[in-house]
């Protein structure tokens, strides 16, 4: 379903005081309410930490007629480690990610992404599920979920379904979520031992800035020195968070010598599709993306 585009002002929106609100504390209750709303053509928009929706309401950009408060819904928070993956509840806040020893051990770039998303006030309330559902191409955690091959579990009264993060976005602010569905959790496969793992944000300042370019990068070399596996994703250089399969193919199975890295950097320049906007220019974004690819492929070659 299309996510609301907060860049577009709406003419006829309800007043804040007219918004119908349901506060859910149990997942079953939340899903039943959402299913009924979708069926009658009056869907409920979920709110968790409010860091997007409250701004949209204040600025009268997106004012839903119905809001379901899921902040306290049980079973949607917390971080767990299983044998092959780490699992994060959709209501897990950036602050919780920053404090998590499990995330720090297995996917440290997600800690960096959480640390540089907004500042402490946003990190207390903003949630991973909100970052994903918000569907902004500049969502700070998204390059990590993308490059690390994360999976999402979506739930409705019809049951749960698992979708690949890579398939979740279908266009600018468009995603697979149905009107009666919530993101329940995110699962990230544990990277191979010895992987180089990086999150790199380029913005005007570390805190509170919306990124000009963001990179999620993971890779490791095999015993023969060739690239055994690699995942490269960028934020803010395309209408959606952008996985870079062509750039990855340019190096996978190869020794990272100068010619190979040069070739991959050229491919990366073609693969990103940045725009000029208030934060940066397409030219700058493309150059920065290429420089980041060069920097971390070089680092990988020495790992």
């Amino acid at each position: 379903m299309p996510s609301p585009n907060p860049m577009v002002a709406r003419a006829d929106v309800p007043r804040r005081s007219e918004i119908e609100v349901h506060q859910a504390s149990r997942l079953k209750d939340a899903l039943e309410v959402m299913a009924a709303g979708a069926a009658e053509g009056k869907p409920w928009m979920p709110v968790a930490g409010g860091t997007d929706l409250m701004v949209w309401i204040t600025q009268r950009r997106v004012v839903p007629a119905r809001v379901i408060d899921i902040w306290n819904v049980d079973g949607m928070r917390g971080i767990e480690e299983t044998e092959g993956s780490i699992t994060l509840g959709a209501l897990t806040s950036y602050a919780e990610v920053r404090r998590s020893e499990v995330v720090a051990e297995w996917v440290p770039p997600l800690v960096d992404a959480a640390r540089w998303c907004g500042a402490a006030q946003i990190q207390s309330r903003g949630t991973l599920g909100g970052n994903i559902a918000g569907s902004s191409p500049a969502g700070d955690t998204l390059p990590v979920f993308s490059a690390w091959d994360a999976e999402l579990t979506l739930v409705s009264t019809a049951g749960a379904r698992v979708v690949k993060f890579a398939d979740f976005y279908t266009g600018y602010r468009q995603n697979l979520l149905q009107e009666d569905e919530l993101i329940l959790r995110i699962s990230i496969p544990k990277p191979a031992a010895g992987s180089l793992q990086v999150f790199h944000k380029v913005g005007t300042r570390r805190a509170q800035s919306i990124s000009k370019v963001m990179l999620g990068f993971r890779g490791h070399l095999g015993a023969d020195g060739t690239v055994e596996d690699v995942g490269i994703s960028f934020g803010s250089v395309a209408p959606i968070v952008l996985r870079m399969p062509r750039t990855e193919s340019a190096v996978r199975g190869k020794v990272l010598d100068t010619d190979t890295i040069d070739a991959a950097v050229r491919v990366a320049g073609d693969e990103v599709v940045p725009i000029d906007d208030v934060r940066s220019s397409a030219t700058y974004r493309r150059r920065v993306a290429q420089n980041l690819v060069r920097r971390y492929l070089t680092a990988l070659s020495k790992s």
Binding site: G50, M54, D69, S124, R125
Partner: peptide
């Protein structure tokens, strides 16, 4: 502060 955590009160609905 909400339960000791810093928040922006402009982003918190009263119901929370």
């Amino acid at each position: 502060l909400i339960d000791g955590e810093v928040v922006n009160s402009c982003l918190v609905p009263a119901i929370q």
